[in-house]
Simulated assay, not measured.
Amino acid sequence: MSLSTNADEHQVREFTCGCCAAPAQRTWNFVLRDGSPHAVYFANSYNHGGQGHETWIDVILGSWGGENHSDHVTFGCRVGAVEDSPAPAATAVQACLDGSAGPLHGRTLSREEALAHPWITDFWAVVDHVLEHDPVVHPHLYG
């Protein structure tokens, strides 16, 4: 399985963090698997006023190419500092914690639902791809 994104489709929006009023960035794009639409991700990167870098990622998996989103499911994770680790770590969380859920997201999964879902491996593969290749997320978390 080969994942890719199209740099021409990558979107970024600046916003203000609701909890600390620090600048933040939201980035999103389609993810292709072997050249075909596979997922959409939304990643919110925060600095929390100098208190630490973290990114919250929602990944929508399902079929693409039409207006029917009935098979879509959205997974969520937080990537950031964790105790006793020099590198950021990813943890599954409730999807769309920022209140962004809409029809495109389909069913938003809780942490427990995500960990038991048959598409969890696809979700983590997309997260790994975002962490390695997104031009906002990668430098935000890894410098």
Rank of each mutant, 00 (worst) to 15 (best):
M1A: 12
L3Y: 06
S4Y: 00
S4M: 00
S4N: 12
T5H: 12
T5L: 11
A7Y: 04
A7W: 00
D8F: 10
E9F: 03
H10M: 10
Q11M: 06
V12I: 05
V12T: 06
V12K: 09
T16M: 09
C17S: 13
C17A: 12
C19V: 09
C20I: 01
C20L: 12
C20Q: 11
A21K: 08
P23I: 00
Q25V: 04
R26T: 06
T27S: 15
F30K: 04
L32A: 05
R33K: 09
R33E: 03
G35W: 04
G35K: 05
S36F: 11
P37V: 05
H38F: 13
A39W: 08
V40E: 15
Y41S: 03
Y41M: 02
A43I: 03
A43F: 07
S45G: 14
N47H: 13
N47A: 15
N47R: 15
G49E: 02
G49D: 08
G52A: 04
G52L: 07
E54Q: 13
E54L: 05
E54D: 14
E54K: 08
T55Y: 07
T55S: 15
I60R: 10
L61Q: 05
G62T: 03
G62S: 06
G62I: 01
G62P: 02
S63W: 04
S63M: 08
W64V: 00
W64L: 01
N68P: 00
H69V: 08
S70A: 03
S70V: 01
D71E: 12
H72F: 02
V73I: 14
C77M: 08
R78D: 03
R78G: 01
V79R: 06
V79E: 06
A81N: 08
V82G: 11
V82P: 00
P86D: 06
P86E: 07
P88Q: 03
A89H: 03
A89C: 04
A92L: 07
A92Q: 00
A95P: 15
L97S: 14
L97E: 14
S100F: 08
A101T: 05
A101C: 14
G102M: 09
L104E: 13
R107C: 04
R107K: 15
R107D: 07
R107S: 13
T108A: 09
T108F: 02
T108W: 01
T108M: 10
T108K: 01
R111Y: 03
E112F: 05
A114T: 04
H117V: 10
P118R: 15
W119G: 00
I120L: 12
I120E: 01
T121F: 11
D122H: 12
D122T: 08
W124K: 07
W124Q: 05
A125K: 06
V127Y: 10
V127I: 11
D128F: 05
H129F: 05
V130I: 13
E132Q: 14
E132C: 09
P135M: 06
V136F: 09
V137E: 08
P139W: 11
H140P: 03
L141I: 09
L141Y: 07
Y142A: 02
Y142G: 02
Y142S: 03
